[in-house]
């Protein structure tokens, strides 16, 4: 089943003479349950693709379908709802709230969703258990190692039980040992929970974990 689909998507930044065409007619379909790696040099359009997939950025022309719904026709509120219920994010810089505990960080998406306290508490504990950080829930990010912080971020991403996990260079700030641990975790989430994973990466050895690799160059897919 096709989960998301880019149809002839273009994205142009800036206006007038100084425009930059980040995407030049992207066509890409991603099936439910895939583990996709997006690769390519910087400026090739892979991050723009991620942002559009994340419903954070709008496209200039073409269409982006999420479960056959054209996202460009949705308003801000609807896109937030979509993001909140179907998408999870992992960033290179972890992007945890520095002064909140691991548990509070994981709970955050559920708070915005309006879940009840005991529901979100147990969901957050479950998520932390899945990433192996049950014993660290009361620690703040600066008390955790980089790998642990990224696991908290993963727990936060999966606590809403999303269909898609969007990972923007998840191992960019980590050493190789920790990186492979994070990749195994993502692989198991993909395999065991059936979450579709879309990952941007520079490193070929990380891309090996993916079931499909998409190469970007100059705003287009090369393979």
């Amino acid at each position: 089943m096709t989960l998301i689909q880019f149809k002839n998507v273009t994205k142009t930044y800036g206006a007038g003479d100084s425009t930059f065409r980040a995407l030049k007619g992207l066509n890409l379909a991603i099936e439910d349950g895939e583990f996709l790696a997006l690769m390519g040099p910087s400026g090739s359009g892979k991050s723009t693709t991620m942002n559009i997939a994340a419903c954070l950025d709008t496209l200039t022309s073409g269409s982006y379908l999420f479960q056959n719904i054209p996202v460009e026709n949705l308003n801000t509120y609807q896109r937030t709802l979509l993001r909140r219920n179907f998408l999870g994010f992992i960033f290179q810089g972890f992007n945890l709230l520095a002064r909140s505990s691991a548990l509070e960080n994981v709970e955050l998406p559920l708070i915005y969703r309006g879940d009840k306290v005991h529901e979100r508490r147990s969901a957050a504990n479950d998520a932390l258990k899945k990433v192996g950080l049950s014993n660290w829930r009361d620690h703040t990010p600066n008390e955790l190692s980089g790998g642990q912080q990224q696991r908290v971020a993963i727990a936060r991403a999966i606590v809403t039980k999303p269909k898609i996990l969007l990972a923007d260079e998840p191992t960019g700030n980590l050493d190789s040992q920790t990186s492979s641990e994070i990749m195994s975790l993502l692989t198991s989430l993909n395999r065991d929970l059936g979450i579709t994973v879309i990952m941007v990466t520079h490193e070929p050895e990380m891309a090996k974990y993916a079931s499909r690799i998409v190469h970007f160059l100059d705003g287009q897919i090369t393979n």
Binding site: A54, L56, Y77, T80, R83, R84, F89, N95, L96, L97, L108, P109, Y112, R113, R156, T160
Partner: peptide, 9 residues
């Protein structure tokens, strides 16, 4: 930014 990305309106 984090809050908006993870679902804050």
């Amino acid at each position: 930014g984090i809050r908006l990305a993870i679902g804050a309106l």
